[in-house]
Amino acid sequence: MTVHVPPPDATLDPDPLLSVAGISRFYGERIGCADVSFELWPGEVLGIVGESGSGKSTLLRCLAGIDKPDAGEVLFRGSGEPLDIYSVSEQERRRLMRTAWGIVHQNPRDGLRMDVSAGGNVGERLMDRGDRHYGKIRDTALDWLTRVEIAENRIDDRPRQFSGGMQQRLQIARVLVSEPKLVFMDEPTGGLDVSVQARLLDLLRVLVRDLGLAAIIVTHDLAVARLLTDRLMVMKDGHVVEQGLTDQVLDDPHHAYTQLLTSAVLSV
């Protein structure tokens, strides 16, 4: 038996994939989220936790470029020059969304084309980027259906004929097929039964690790955060009250609100 000696020059990526500075969004007098800043590196999975109305979904919508914040900046380093996602053209932002970014919605209906077959749903991003070989598109779609544990013979069925868990897995395949660098997930296991959740969580865990994805996951479920995320931001009333390594925040919470959150849950 030998002790593994780490290679001396296993340097971490020098630049963050996403740099978020001072994001604030107000709804009139009410705070959506206030002065949120963080950096996300390639391969990191960040969880945003908090109760309903804590501002986590508002923040996610701003980060993903769906909404524009009232203040703040988000820089994305996909390849080449960093992109300021609020000042790039809508065209460029839409292109990002179809290629380097992905969004997994809580409700699969928001992320899938319900009248298009499973294969067509997965293949769309490939066709978006200009793939024009039917056989290759179909092979890639089959491969992804297998990876998300949907039987190959369902490739021509429409999502309507799928269970909720299958729809969610199909949505994930549809997003990941273009090999995005950054994925946003909004309560990805939200509407599912507990047993179905477990399967989906495990699948996400494996995919995120195998693909080296960076991801930002909004959830109110601390068990989901524990299983999927490396880092955690705890939000309350639009403010980030605590952040750090996921196990630090959950096992040794410092802020009163985080202590309340973690103590309200049965062993996570």
């Binding site: 077959s117 067509g120 991003r125 978006d128 980027r129 039917y134 598109i137 490739i155 021509d156």
Partner: peptide, 13 residues
């Protein structure tokens, strides 16, 4: 891409 999806659906079916 979506236009192509329509053709894909045709061939698949």
């Amino acid at each position: 891409g979506l236009m192509q999806v329509k053709l894909y659906e045709n061939i698949a079916r």
